[in-house]
Structure formats: C-alpha cells, structure tokens
Amino acid sequence: MGIFDHFMNLRAVYIHLGWFQISITNLIVVLGMLVLFGLALFLPFPGNKKKGQK
C-alpha cells in the first residue's frame, strides 16, 4: 500500500560504536531534541524588547 507500508516493513538500521549502539531512528530523535533545545535557548523571543533594551 505505497511508500509508508514499505518503510514500516524495513528492518531498523543500527550504529555500533564499541559498547554503544543506537538505531538511526532514535539517533535522529535525540539529535532533533538537542537542536530544539539549542533553538529554544538562542532564538530571540518575539516581543521581549522593552524600554531600555537594544
């Protein structure tokens, strides 16, 4: 039934680095969360420019 069924039936691909092992899927999720965390800290929040601020 199309591309998604094909995708769902594939075996997960794992990265092995010695004792460390993680699936590509989980790695993407973890990296995505780290990126989101970084963006949340460093992106300027709209409407927080008050008097006396540049």
């Binding site: 965390f37 963006l39 949340a40 800290l41 929040f45 927080n48």
Partner: peptide, 11 residues
Amino acid sequence: PAYVASWIYLF
C-alpha cells in the same frame, strides 16, 4: 516576570 520571555518556558 521579564525572564519568562524565552522559548524554553513554552515547553
């Protein structure tokens, strides 16, 4: 308070 104006507080 003013310090709440950051994206991190929205999570």
